[in-house]
Lab assay of single mutants.
Amino acid sequence: NQASVVANQLIPISTHLTLVMMRSEVVTPVGIPAEDIPRLVSMQVNRAVPLGTTLMPDMVKGYA
């Protein structure tokens, strides 16, 4: 099972991601792979992401 990136807190819209905001967890459905966490740092979310939500490629500007 592959770990995905999950929000560690509420991430407001247009926030630049930091390591503190993300954790890796095995979830269904599978989202952005956990090994991409370093790549996600300083990218922006294009919507509010609630605590515990799996980050999907379409939620992060410039990821997909």
Score class of each variant (00 low, 15 high):
T53D: 14
M43Q: 08
T53C: 08
Q2L: 10
M22F: 05
A7P: 02
M22Q: 00
M43I: 04
V60F: 05
T54H: 01
T15I: 07
G31T: 00
V30Q: 15
P12Y: 05
Q44P: 06
M56W: 05
T54Y: 02
P29G: 03
A3L: 11
M21Y: 05
I37C: 05
L10C: 15
S14C: 09
Q44H: 12
P57W: 06
V27L: 04
P12K: 08
Y63G: 04
E35Y: 10
S14W: 15
D36Q: 14
S4Q: 01
H16D: 08
V5L: 03
M21R: 00
S24A: 12
N8V: 07
N46E: 09
N8A: 14
T15C: 07
A48G: 10
I32P: 01
P29F: 04
V41F: 04
D36C: 11
T15F: 07
T54S: 04
M56L: 11
T54L: 04
T28S: 13
D58K: 07
K61D: 14
K61W: 12
T54Q: 03
A7H: 02
V41Q: 06
M56H: 10
V49W: 04
G31N: 01
V30T: 14
V30P: 12
V6W: 02
Q2A: 14
T53L: 11
A34H: 06
T15R: 06
M22W: 03
V49Q: 02
V45C: 06
V49R: 01
Q9I: 11
A64I: 13
V41N: 03
T18Q: 12
A3F: 07
P50G: 13
I13C: 15
G62A: 08
I37E: 02
I13N: 12
I13Q: 13
G62L: 07
N46S: 14
R47P: 02
L55K: 01
K61L: 15
A64M: 15
M21W: 00
I37P: 02
S14F: 15
V49L: 08
L17C: 03
A7Q: 01
M21N: 09
R47V: 15
P50K: 11
S42H: 12
V45P: 01
G62H: 13
Q9P: 01
E25S: 09
D36P: 00
L17Y: 00
S14R: 11
Q2D: 15
I13H: 14
H16E: 11
T18L: 09
V60I: 12
P38H: 15
V20L: 13
T53P: 02
M43R: 11
L19N: 08
D58T: 10
E25K: 06
M43F: 08
Q2R: 05
Y63L: 06
L40K: 00
L10Q: 15
V30E: 15
M59A: 09
G31L: 02
I32D: 00
A7F: 01
T18N: 05
V20C: 13
L51Q: 14
P50D: 10
M59T: 06
I32M: 03
S42Q: 10
G52I: 03
N1S: 15
M22Y: 00
M56A: 07
L19T: 10
S42T: 11
A3Y: 10
M43G: 02
L40W: 03
N8C: 11
L40S: 00
S42V: 04
D36Y: 10
P38G: 12
G62Q: 07
E35D: 09
V60H: 01
L17K: 00
I13K: 10
E25F: 06
L51T: 13
P38D: 13
M43L: 11
E25I: 05
V20I: 12
E35P: 07
A64E: 14
M59W: 13
S4V: 01
M56S: 06
I11R: 00
P33T: 08
P29Q: 05
L10V: 11
Q44L: 07
A34P: 05
I11T: 00
L10A: 14
T18P: 00
I13L: 12
G62V: 04
V45E: 02
I11Y: 03
E35A: 09
A3Q: 12
N46C: 08
M56G: 04
L40F: 00
P33W: 10
S4R: 02
V27E: 03
A34E: 10
L10P: 10
V49T: 04
D58V: 10
M21F: 03
N1G: 15
T28L: 08
N46W: 06
M59Q: 04
G52W: 04
I37A: 07
M21H: 12
D36G: 05
V45N: 02
I11W: 02
H16R: 12
L10Y: 13
D36E: 13
G31A: 03
A64R: 12
P50Y: 13
D58R: 07
V27C: 05
Q9A: 11
L51I: 12
S24N: 08
Q2K: 07
M21V: 03
E35W: 09
L55R: 00
Q44W: 05
L19H: 12
V6F: 00
Q2C: 11
M21L: 05
L40T: 01
P50M: 07
G62F: 07
V20H: 15
H16N: 10
P57Q: 07
A3P: 12
T18I: 05
V27T: 13
L40V: 05
E35I: 09
P33A: 14
P29M: 05
E35Q: 09
L51W: 09
V30S: 13
M56F: 10
H16Y: 10
L10I: 11
P33C: 15
I11K: 00
P12S: 07
P57D: 05
S4Y: 04
M56N: 05
I13T: 12
N46H: 09
G62C: 12
S4W: 02
I11S: 01
I13F: 11
P29R: 04
P12C: 05
A48K: 13
I32K: 00
P50F: 06
P29D: 09
G31E: 01
V30R: 05
I11C: 03
L51E: 15
N8Q: 11
L51R: 11
A3I: 07
M43H: 07
P12F: 04
T15S: 11
A7E: 01
T28A: 14
I37G: 03
S4I: 02
N1Q: 12
G62R: 06
V5S: 02
V20Q: 13
N1V: 15
Q44S: 12
H16M: 13
V45A: 05
R39W: 09
A48Q: 13
M56T: 12
M22L: 14
I37M: 12
V6R: 03
V45T: 10
R39A: 14
V27S: 05
Q44N: 04
D36A: 13
N46R: 09
L19G: 06
M22C: 03
P33G: 05
T28V: 10
S4A: 02
T53V: 15
P12M: 05
T28D: 15
R23L: 05
A64G: 14
M43N: 04
G31D: 02
E35L: 08
T15N: 04
P33Q: 07
P57N: 05
Q9R: 09
V60M: 04
A34S: 13
S24K: 09
A34W: 06
T54R: 02
V45S: 06
G62N: 13
M59V: 08
Q44V: 14
A34F: 08
L55S: 01
G31C: 03
A64N: 12
D58L: 11
G31I: 00
V60G: 01
I32W: 01
T54M: 03
G52M: 04
G62T: 06
R39I: 08
T18Y: 03
K61H: 15
R39G: 08
T18R: 07
L55Y: 00
V26W: 07
V30H: 12
V26F: 14
L40I: 09
M21E: 03
I32H: 02
N1I: 15
V20E: 14
L10W: 10
P50H: 08
P29L: 05
M21T: 03
H16S: 14
P57I: 05
L55I: 12
V30M: 13
V26R: 04
T18W: 03
P50A: 12
Q2I: 12
M56C: 14
S42K: 13
I32R: 00
M22E: 03
T53R: 11
G52E: 04
L55T: 01
S42Y: 09
L17E: 02
Y63W: 15
S24T: 14
R23N: 06
M43K: 10
L19W: 13
E25G: 12
R23W: 04
T28P: 00
M56R: 08
V60S: 02
R47M: 13
L51P: 08
V45R: 00
V6G: 00
L55G: 02
P38Y: 13
I32N: 01
S24R: 06
P50T: 10
S24W: 06
M22T: 00
L51A: 14
V30F: 09
V20W: 12
P33L: 09
V26T: 12
L55D: 02
L19P: 11
M56V: 07
G62E: 09
N46T: 10
I13V: 14
K61E: 15
V45Q: 01
P38S: 12
Y63H: 04
Q44G: 03
V5Q: 01
N8M: 06
P12N: 07
